[in-house]
Amino acid sequence: MAKVLLAGFGKLARALAPVLIEQGHHVIGLARSNITVSGVASIQWDLAEPPQSFLDSERATELSHLDYVVVTLSPDEISDDAYRRAYVDATSNLLAILQAQELSPKIIYVSSTRVYAHNDGEWVDESSPTLPTTSKGQSLLEAEQLIRQQSSDNIVVRFSGIYGSERNYFKKRVEAGIKIQKRPAQFSNRIHQEDCIGVLNFLIAQFEKGARLDPLLLASDDDPAPLLEVANHIAQNFNYPKPTIIINDGDLAPVGKRCRNDKLKSLGYRFRYPSFRDGYQA
Rank of each mutant, 00 (worst) to 15 (best):
P18Q: 07
L20M: 05
L20I: 01
I21Q: 09
H26M: 08
I28F: 05
R32Y: 04
G39E: 09
A41C: 04
A41Q: 14
Q44N: 08
Q44P: 04
D46N: 13
D46S: 09
L47S: 00
A48V: 09
P51Y: 12
S53D: 12
F54E: 04
F54H: 05
L55I: 06
D56M: 09
D56L: 12
S57D: 08
E58C: 07
R59L: 10
T61I: 09
T61E: 15
E62N: 11
E62V: 00
L63T: 07
H65F: 04
L66S: 10
Y68E: 07
V71G: 03
V71E: 02
L73Y: 02
S74W: 02
P75M: 11
P75F: 04
D76V: 13
E77S: 15
D81R: 14
Y83F: 15
A86P: 06
A86N: 06
V88P: 04
A90Q: 03
A90D: 03
T91F: 02
S92Y: 02
S92P: 00
N93T: 06
L94V: 03
A96I: 03
L98I: 06
L98M: 07
Q99H: 12
A100P: 04
Q101L: 14
E102F: 04
P105A: 09
P105R: 07
P105Q: 08
P105F: 01
P105M: 07
P105G: 07
K106I: 13
K106R: 15
I107N: 04
S112T: 15
A117N: 14
H118F: 11
D120L: 14
G121Q: 05
